[in-house]
Amino acid sequence: MIPVVHPEFCAGSGACARAAPTVFGLDDRGWVELLDSHPGPERAAALLEARDACPLAAIEVLDEHGDPVG
């Protein structure tokens, strides 16, 4: 799975960083930043949790073909 972030939509809730702290962090303004652009399959559940927890849909998760997951 490939995570994609859209910081321009971020509300700074930090839900993504709590759900998947090795993949998502917060920059100095508090907006989402991608820490790991190719997390392993063991992070799949956390990626989807982070995406679903984002209140403004600032995170997408794509499959290996670039199609949205779930």
Score class of each variant (00 low, 15 high):
Ala57Cys: 09
Asp28Gln: 07
Ala19Asp: 04
Asp67His: 14
Arg51Asn: 06
Arg29Val: 01
Ile2Val: 13
Ala58Ile: 07
Asp28Lys: 00
Gly30Lys: 01
Glu64Ile: 07
Pro7Ser: 09
Val4Glu: 15
Cys10Val: 08
Asp36Ile: 04
Glu42Leu: 07
Val4His: 12
Ala44Cys: 00
Glu33Asp: 02
Val32Cys: 02
Leu34Ile: 04
Ala15Asp: 13
Arg43Met: 10
Glu64Trp: 10
Pro68Leu: 13
Pro21Thr: 02
Ala20Arg: 00
Ala19Pro: 03
Cys16Arg: 03
Leu26Ala: 12
Cys10Ser: 12
Ala15Ile: 00
Ala50Leu: 08
Asp63His: 11
Asp63Phe: 12
His38Cys: 01
Leu56Trp: 05
Glu64Thr: 13
Phe24Leu: 05
Asp28Glu: 15
Glu60Pro: 07
Asp27Pro: 01
Ala50Thr: 07
Met1Glu: 07
Gly12Asp: 09
Pro41Leu: 08
Glu42Arg: 11
Ile2His: 15
Asp36Cys: 07
Ala15Cys: 11
Ser37Ala: 15
His65Glu: 15
Gly30Glu: 05
Asp27Ile: 01
Ala53Val: 04
Ile2Trp: 10
Val61Cys: 09
Ala44Val: 08
Gly14Cys: 09
Gly66Asp: 11
Trp31Asn: 01
Pro68Arg: 14
Val69Trp: 11
Ala46Gly: 02
Ser13Phe: 06
Ile59Glu: 06
Arg29Trp: 05
Cys16Phe: 01
Glu33Pro: 01
Ala20Gln: 02
Asp36His: 06
Ala53Cys: 06
Ala44Gln: 11
Pro55Val: 06
Ala46Lys: 06
Gly66Trp: 13
Ala20Trp: 01
Asp27Asn: 13
Cys16Val: 00
Gly12Asn: 09
Glu42Ala: 14
Ala15Tyr: 08
Glu8Cys: 05
Pro68Asp: 10
Pro39Val: 08
Ser13Val: 00
Ala11Glu: 15
Phe24Ile: 01
Ala20Cys: 08
Phe24Pro: 03
Arg18Asp: 12
Ile2Gln: 15
Pro3Ala: 12
Glu60Met: 07
Asp28Cys: 02
Pro55Thr: 07
Gly70Ser: 13
Pro39Ser: 08
Pro68Ala: 13
Ala17Arg: 05
Arg18Glu: 14
Val4Asn: 06
Gly12Met: 08
Ala50Pro: 04
Cys10Ala: 11
Asp52Gly: 10
Asp27Ser: 03
Gly25His: 04
Leu62Ala: 12
Trp31Leu: 15
Val32Met: 02
Val69Gln: 11
Ala53Pro: 05
Arg18Cys: 01
Arg43Tyr: 07
Arg43Pro: 00
Asp63Ile: 11
Ala57Ile: 05
Pro3Glu: 09
Thr22His: 11
His6Arg: 14
Ala15Phe: 10
Gly25Ser: 05
Ala11Leu: 15
His65Phe: 12
Gly12Ile: 06
Val61Met: 10
Arg29Ile: 00
Cys54Trp: 08
Phe9Val: 04
Cys10Leu: 09
Val23Gln: 02
Gly14Ile: 08
